[in-house]
């Protein structure tokens, strides 16, 4: 992901793409995230505990998906004046570690007077199934 010196409101256009960015989350990283969030449920740490719940193996917490999609937006904003003001996510399917995931985003709507931007975001697996979908809102100050 290249460094972004900052996005300004007047440069944003509907249809603009955020990503796609491919990632693979290894199990130790997934466990570290769950631990950092105080999520001690076995389903986030241990394959056996997850299987005991009927899951195929340990899963990535929804909060991790939300964090990744938030970061997709804040990385896109870079050091500019825009600010992430809202994100909403829906977890449509479990997200498993050690799989290739792709983060996608598109600018879908711009409110010129309010200087706000709406963005679709989602996480796909290798089969192009959308596992997590969401929308984010970004606000820019009156002048930037």
């Amino acid at each position: 992901m290249s460094a972004n010196t900052g996005r300004h409101f007047d440069s944003v256009a509907v249809g603009e793409s955020l990503g796609p960015h491919e990632i693979v989350i290894e199990k130790p990283r997934a466990r570290a995230f769950a631990a950092a969030c105080g999520m001690d449920s076995g389903r986030f740490h241990d394959d056996e505990a997850a299987r005991a719940e009927g899951l195929p193996g340990m899963i990535i917490p929804g909060n991790f998906s939300l964090g990744l999609l938030s970061k997709l937006v804040t990385d896109w904003l870079g050091a500019g004046p825009g600010r992430l003001t809202r994100i909403g996510t829906t977890y449509r399917a479990i997200v498993l570690p050690e799989r290739r995931l792709t983060l996608h985003g598109f600018v879908t709507h711009i409110e010129r007077e309010a200087r706000s931007v709406e963005i679709d975001v989602w996480i796909e697996n290798e089969e192009a199934e959308r596992l997590v979908i969401g929308t984010a809102s970004v606000a820019f100050p009156p002048t930037d």
Binding site: G62, L66, I87
Partner: peptide
């Protein structure tokens, strides 16, 4: 399960 979140900052 966690089905999703809506967060305002």
């Amino acid at each position: 399960f966690d089905a999703g979140k809506e967060v305002e900052f």
